[in-house]
Protein backbone atom coordinates (compact mmCIF):
# COMPACT_ATOMS: atom_id res chain seq x y z
CA UNK A 1 0.00 0.00 0.00
CA UNK A 2 1.43 3.41 -0.91
CA UNK A 3 2.25 5.75 1.95
CA UNK A 4 -0.31 8.38 0.94
CA UNK A 5 -3.04 5.76 1.17
CA UNK A 6 -1.99 4.84 4.69
CA UNK A 7 -1.99 8.49 5.70
CA UNK A 8 -5.40 9.00 4.13
CA UNK A 9 -6.83 5.96 5.94
CA UNK A 10 -5.20 7.14 9.17
CA UNK A 11 -6.74 10.60 8.83
CA UNK A 12 -10.18 9.33 7.94
CA UNK A 13 -10.10 7.00 10.94
CA UNK A 14 -9.15 9.90 13.23
CA UNK A 15 -11.87 12.07 11.67
CA UNK A 16 -14.43 9.28 12.07
CA UNK A 17 -13.62 8.61 15.74
CA UNK A 18 -13.41 12.33 16.42
CA UNK A 19 -16.86 12.87 14.94
CA UNK A 20 -18.23 9.83 16.79
CA UNK A 21 -16.83 11.08 20.11
CA UNK A 22 -18.22 14.55 19.41
CA UNK A 23 -21.63 13.13 18.56
CA UNK A 24 -21.57 10.97 21.68
CA UNK A 25 -20.66 13.91 23.94
CA UNK A 26 -23.22 16.16 22.29
CA UNK A 27 -26.02 13.69 22.93
CA UNK A 28 -24.87 12.50 26.32
CA UNK A 29 -27.56 12.84 28.94
CA UNK A 30 -26.83 14.05 32.46
CA UNK A 31 -25.82 11.11 34.64
CA UNK A 32 -28.72 9.24 36.21
CA UNK A 33 -28.06 9.91 39.89
CA UNK A 34 -30.10 6.83 40.81
CA UNK A 35 -27.34 4.64 39.35
CA UNK A 36 -24.51 6.40 41.16
CA UNK A 37 -23.10 5.36 44.50
CA UNK A 38 -23.33 8.17 47.06
CA UNK A 39 -20.00 9.92 47.74
CA UNK A 40 -21.04 10.68 51.32
CA UNK A 41 -23.71 9.68 53.81
CA UNK A 42 -24.98 12.13 56.43
CA UNK A 43 -27.96 12.91 58.62
CA UNK A 44 -30.14 15.94 57.81
CA UNK A 45 -29.15 17.47 61.18
CA UNK A 46 -25.45 17.14 60.44
CA UNK A 47 -25.80 18.53 56.92
CA UNK A 48 -27.62 21.68 58.08
CA UNK A 49 -25.16 22.14 60.93
CA UNK A 50 -22.27 21.94 58.47
CA UNK A 51 -23.83 24.57 56.16
CA UNK A 52 -24.84 26.85 59.04
CA UNK A 53 -21.41 26.86 60.67
CA UNK A 54 -19.28 27.30 57.54
CA UNK A 55 -21.06 27.52 54.20
CA UNK A 56 -17.87 27.80 52.13
CA UNK A 57 -16.36 24.67 53.65
CA UNK A 58 -19.67 22.80 53.33
CA UNK A 59 -19.90 23.82 49.66
CA UNK A 60 -16.45 22.38 49.04
CA UNK A 61 -17.43 19.15 50.72
CA UNK A 62 -21.00 18.60 49.46
CA UNK A 63 -21.72 20.78 46.41
CA UNK A 64 -22.26 18.81 43.18
CA UNK A 65 -21.75 15.55 45.11
CA UNK A 66 -24.17 12.67 45.28
CA UNK A 67 -25.08 12.29 48.93
CA UNK A 68 -27.33 10.04 50.98
CA UNK A 69 -29.24 11.95 53.65
CA UNK A 70 -31.06 10.34 56.56
CA UNK A 71 -33.82 12.30 58.25
CA UNK A 72 -37.39 12.55 59.49
CA UNK A 73 -39.96 13.62 56.88
CA UNK A 74 -41.36 17.05 57.81
CA UNK A 75 -43.45 17.51 54.69
CA UNK A 76 -44.28 15.88 51.36
CA UNK A 77 -45.22 18.06 48.38
CA UNK A 78 -46.77 16.48 45.33
CA UNK A 79 -47.92 18.68 42.50
CA UNK A 80 -50.12 16.55 40.31
CA UNK A 81 -50.35 19.20 37.58
CA UNK A 82 -46.60 19.15 36.94
CA UNK A 83 -45.92 15.59 38.18
CA UNK A 84 -43.38 16.99 40.59
CA UNK A 85 -42.55 15.48 43.97
CA UNK A 86 -40.47 16.91 46.81
CA UNK A 87 -39.77 15.80 50.35
CA UNK A 88 -38.69 18.14 53.14
CA UNK A 89 -36.49 16.62 55.83
CA UNK A 90 -36.47 18.02 59.34
CA UNK A 91 -33.06 19.16 60.58
CA UNK A 92 -33.77 20.18 64.16
CA UNK A 93 -33.32 23.81 63.03
CA UNK A 94 -36.71 25.52 62.54
CA UNK A 95 -35.24 27.95 59.99
CA UNK A 96 -33.74 25.47 57.57
CA UNK A 97 -34.42 21.98 56.39
CA UNK A 98 -33.32 19.74 53.54
CA UNK A 99 -35.48 20.04 50.42
CA UNK A 100 -35.26 17.02 48.13
CA UNK A 101 -36.66 17.31 44.63
CA UNK A 102 -37.31 13.94 43.01
CA UNK A 103 -37.16 12.58 39.50
CA UNK A 104 -40.65 12.89 38.03
CA UNK A 105 -40.99 9.11 37.65
CA UNK A 106 -40.25 8.62 41.36
CA UNK A 107 -43.61 10.18 42.27
CA UNK A 108 -45.14 6.75 43.00
CA UNK A 109 -42.43 5.95 45.55
CA UNK A 110 -42.84 9.39 47.18
CA UNK A 111 -46.61 8.86 47.50
CA UNK A 112 -45.96 5.80 49.69
CA UNK A 113 -43.99 7.86 52.24
CA UNK A 114 -45.60 9.40 55.30
CA UNK A 115 -44.80 12.41 57.45
CA UNK A 116 -42.90 11.80 60.67
CA UNK A 117 -41.16 8.63 59.48
CA UNK A 118 -37.47 8.19 58.88
CA UNK A 119 -36.14 7.92 55.36
CA UNK A 120 -32.80 7.84 53.51
CA UNK A 121 -32.78 9.89 50.30
CA UNK A 122 -30.06 9.99 47.66
CA UNK A 123 -29.59 13.08 45.50
CA UNK A 124 -27.19 15.65 44.17
CA UNK A 125 -26.48 18.60 46.44
CA UNK A 126 -27.00 21.94 44.64
CA UNK A 127 -26.24 24.25 47.58
CA UNK A 128 -28.07 26.20 50.27
CA UNK A 129 -30.79 28.79 49.87
CA UNK A 130 -32.89 28.73 53.04
CA UNK A 131 -32.74 25.00 52.91
CA UNK A 132 -30.00 22.77 51.62
CA UNK A 133 -31.35 21.53 48.29
CA UNK A 134 -30.92 18.08 46.76
CA UNK A 135 -31.75 17.45 43.13
CA UNK A 136 -32.47 14.27 41.13
CA UNK A 137 -33.54 12.44 44.26
CA UNK A 138 -34.62 8.86 44.86
CA UNK A 139 -35.38 6.87 47.99
CA UNK A 140 -32.75 4.45 49.24
CA UNK A 141 -34.50 3.23 52.34
Amino acid sequence: MPTWKKILIGFSLIAFFGAAAGYYLYNKKPADVRRLQPDLSVTANFLILAFNSDEAAANLKYLDKVIAVKGIIADIKIDSSTGQASVILDSGDPLSAVTCSFYNDEIGAVQKLSKGTEVVIKGKCTGKLMDVVLNNCSIIQ
Binding site: Y26, N27, K28, S101, T126, V133
Partner: peptide
Protein backbone atom coordinates in the same frame (compact mmCIF):
# COMPACT_ATOMS: atom_id res chain seq x y z
CA UNK B 1 -37.90 34.69 44.74
CA UNK B 2 -34.61 32.82 45.02
CA UNK B 3 -33.04 29.90 43.15
CA UNK B 4 -29.78 27.99 43.16
CA UNK B 5 -28.14 28.12 39.74
CA UNK B 6 -26.73 24.61 40.14
CA UNK B 7 -30.29 23.37 40.58
CA UNK B 8 -31.17 23.69 36.87
CA UNK B 9 -31.76 20.40 35.07
CA UNK B 10 -31.04 19.94 31.37
CA UNK B 11 -31.60 17.24 28.77
CA UNK B 12 -27.90 17.14 27.93
CA UNK B 13 -24.87 16.82 30.20
CA UNK B 14 -22.76 19.11 28.02
CA UNK B 15 -25.40 21.84 28.06
CA UNK B 16 -25.52 21.69 31.84
Amino acid sequence: FAILIKGFEFKSALMM
